[in-house]
Nucleic acid binder design. Sequence first.
DNA 1: AATGTTAATGCAACTTGGTTGCAAAAGTAA
DNA 2: TTACTTTTGCAACCAAGTTGCATTAACATT
Lengths: 125, 125
Amino acid sequence: MGIIRKTQSVEFLLAEFQSTEALSAIELIGRLDSKLNKTTVYRVLDKLEDDGVLHSFLDNSGIRWYAKCKSCTKSKHFDGHPHFQCLSCGKVDCLNINVYLPEIPNRQVTVSQILIQGNCEFCAN
Amino acid sequence: MGIIRKTQSVEFLLAEFQSTEALSAIELIGRLDSKLNKTTVYRVLDKLEDDGVLHSFLDNSGIRWYAKCKSCTKSKHFDGHPHFQCLSCGKVDCLNINVYLPEIPNRQVTVSQILIQGNCEFCAN
DNA sequence: AATGTTAATGCAACTTGGTTGCAAAAGTAA
DNA sequence: TTACTTTTGCAACCAAGTTGCATTAACATT
């Protein structure tokens, strides 16, 4: 069950996703503190994900990140791309590359989550 | 700072990792409920990870899993292999395969976490 | 524009996985 | 056996996320 009404909350949230950078639920709750309740933030993020507008994933410390989907629809979520997290500045974004997963004997693969961590271009050393 | 004393807690915990199956912290706390306090479980798991005896990773719902390391040492954690979670029965284990990650422009890669989800051999349909 | 319906929201209270501080217990070296 | 230090259990805490419910706001219909 996705979005069915164009509410202010939806607009406030979508406005935060102008760039391709991923944002954590926590970050969004902080940014929108004066405008939206945290429950609403979680609920709207959920619905936007159902609708294929955003996709979400976890980083290595267990917090959830959201990013704009490029080619997802309600029925088919295409979020097989890897995500990159800079261990220095903390920023997370989507990588526009394909990772080839080998066949795995005896198992049917449905989804894969790939999180790559390291230093981003601004934090190289 | 890893294990420096061979305590009962360490032995109880290691006894659970006979197979290569991964176990969640939650599962272990449940299994060892009569023997160990949950704080102790978390602390010993932590230390065993520091020592390169276990490695840990998160599944897609944010809970942490632990599995025995094959070739890790205190100094170098080799846990670059992918993990497989059966979406039907919930079991998680380590995959003994290599995933080739392409070069990513402008970024230094340190670690990668790959979680593959689908159906295991017993839950194929 | 006013109205009725139902989805969306805010709030407070709760759940869950995990952490912390501290006194008591258990390992270990001598 | 003693002395020292790590490890443990307990209770209290923390943070991310969820739930129930009364109120508010979209929006289709009139």
